[in-house]
Design a protein around this nucleic acid. Structure first.
Lengths: 109, 109
DNA sequence: TCTTTATTTCTAAAATTCTAGAAATACCGT
DNA sequence: ACGGTATTTCTAGAATTTTAGAAATAAAGA
């Protein structure tokens, strides 16, 4: 991942509302969550939510699938994985900032 | 770490110039880097750099120590560790987005 | 086709961020 | 105390972001 892509994704997550959205989608699990349910949960105007979702979708952190009239949102774990990988590799000292319970191994699949 | 703190730190890192600053400081290692050297490396106006550093310092990601007339900047790994921990715990599905080479263990110190 | 529900796009105002020149401050050596 | 180097603070303009109401679009069902 390039620095500019990482920055764009960090910026997308760096807004409390968008971070809440993303976290909610992670908790929604594999089935995801309709936009409408997100709106109820987060208590934000529909247009505002849509705007934030657009940002998250734009950087690849969220995807949408349509099911009839409702749009289901999903967290994209692959992108998040890449972002965490970038941060650990580019922004951490060897072993110094591995989160507790997380260990960096030499070479594991 | 609270959601708002995590968001503030992600936002701080979510600007290409600031992400470059932070990455440079990580690469500078334990001894850190003077503001002036950062300025040469990143080719940015002194006042602009100072402004971005203020942001990073404000969220705890960077610290400064004075050595005579020069200020030395250091990456704060403890805060970064906490941020990564937050992201893994709050924004990842179990095992789904562990970066390659990183494994989440049940309970390790 | 008309209605309803779900969501986005358009629009615009308020707030914030980014940038960098100029002035101010901090510290050291003489 | 003075001069020089390092860095910050002040200031302000340009650009971007955030917010949400209103209008538009998409899909399903009667």
């Amino acid at each position: 991942m390039k620095l500019d892509d990482a920055a764009a994704r960090l910026e997308a997550l760096g807004n409390p509302t968008r971070l809440k959205i993303y976290r909610t989608l992670v908790r929604a699990g594999r089935e995801g969550s309709p936009v409408g349910r997100l709106q109820e949960r987060l208590d934000v105007a529909a247009s505002t939510l849509s705007h934030h979702l657009k940002t998250l979708i734009g950087v690849g952190l969220v995807t949408q699938t349509r099911e009839g009239t409702t749009l289901i949102c999903h967290a994209n774990y692959e992108i998040m994985r890449g972002l965490l990988e970038y941060m650990v590799e580019e922004c951490c000292a060897e072993g110094t900032c591995s989160p507790a319970g997380i260990i960096k191994l030499p070479k594991v699949a």
